[in-house]
Design a protein around this nucleic acid. Structure first.
Lengths: 227, 227
DNA sequence: ACCTGAACACCGTTCAAGT
DNA sequence: ACCTGAACACCGTTCAAGT
């Protein structure tokens, strides 16, 4: 019972090359970053760790736990201590951090959406939630407000990830989006989709990060309404 | 070249039991609804259509196209014609429609997040976008505003889906969430996660649908700020 | 043109056997 | 306690062969 939990306090590892959950997670992140979600198989992971596929199961219950641990590792680094700033700036900073993390590790976006009450998502919820007092939001509305921020961030994260997955690498994101937009407008007529056609035009001079933060600002403005 | 497209105008089908993309999509939706995402395999689908696995590939390029078509079929029915109402009510109605569709077909939530520029998502974008003029949003902000709404809806959708996937059916959603919250609070101390602990308490007397719509209201309030 | 179904190239996961 | 690696039970997809 003693050493079972996920505490893993640095007691003193014998050999540096021994397998551990941490090493496995790091190797998984490296594969995910370099070659994408579809490249992460237990066989590839075992090969990169110079071990057998079954060995991994001694440290990790299954693939889902592995992906969760990988996503948590990336997000946890990012969300911590923005508590010093003014409320709106802190919210922006947390959101930017999550955005940048997903930009650097696109697979994280998809993973966050698959684990609802899991560490990474709760970390983000906590980060946003602690700022709401500073915006003067009454306690009864705080949960709704924090949820709205989290759901918006997760939805945006999913969009980035989906975009990254389809983009035949080499194209810049804006250029890629412009191409998608062109294809879409060619296939759907402007009469039934007037708004989407106007949006597609704007897409060319558009920056994902700015649009993401514009959404955060809209939410903060809406939240400031609750008093 | 003539009959290739996805037009499929009702010319006159010969035998009612012939395979078609529409029949395949309907069968897929039935399996997804009844047994969940993991139950949809080409073998199971072929069996339910009383045909061979390879036959499906004559009508559908691959599994991803099948899932997209299924999600589009569910969403398209829902988003159409809310155009008569006042802007804020119309936005609420569209959001409610999407929420209810995902509530009834949880697999749709995950699928919407995997197809960025695809029909269903664009349909939702269009629905929201057309209401923004009525809120007095200047054209240059309309794309950001509509995107924020869509991303929020998609993020929420992902959360519902993830919840539904984990929920060992039989429990009501509120009861299930309460159980998740209890488990989470037991494992994380209130000192480092003060907000999440308060949120977990509120979770017991909480309604998903209401919280979702509260987020929509926050967004609408924020969007009305743009002038 | 449309359908069949065996075959291919993979997966995640298990488990007897080793050290 | 930890690791090995073959084996199991699946997948999505292809394709020669049928009608």
């Amino acid at each position: 019972m003693a050493g079972t939990g996920r505490g893993e306090q640095g007691g003193g590892e014998r050999r540096t090359d021994a397998l551990s959950k941490e090493r496995i997670v790091d190797a998984a992140i490296a594969i995910l970053d370099a070659q994408g979600e579809s490249a992460l198989t237990f066989r590839a992971l075992a090969a990169s760790l110079a071990t057998g596929a079954g060995a991994i199961y001694w440290h990790v219950a299954n693939k889902n736990e592995l992906l969760q641990a990988a996503a948590d590792a990336v997000i946890t680094r990012v969300v911590s201590d923005e508590s010093t700033r003014e409320a709106p700036a802190a919210i922006r900073a947390i959101a930017s951090g999550v955005f940048d993390a997903i930009d650097a590790h696109p697979w994280v976006g998809g993973q966050l959406l698959r684990e609802p009450g899991q560490s990474a998502v709760m970390e983000i919820l906590e980060g946003f939630g602690e700022q709401l007092e500073g915006l003067g939001v009454p306690e009864r509305d705080q949960f709704n407000a924090a949820s709205a921020l989290v759901n918006y961030v997760l939805g945006s994260a999913g969009q980035f990830t989906a975009g990254a997955r389809i983009n035949p690498e080499g194209l810049g994101r804006t250029e890629f989006l412009a191409r998608v937009a062109t294809r879409w407008t060619e296939r759907h007529d402007a009469a039934t989709y007037p708004f989407a056609h106007r949006a597609a035009a704007q897409l060319r001079e558009h920056d994902d990060r700015e649009q993401f933060l514009a959404g955060i600002d809209i939410l903060v403005a809406g939240i400031s309404t609750l008093r």
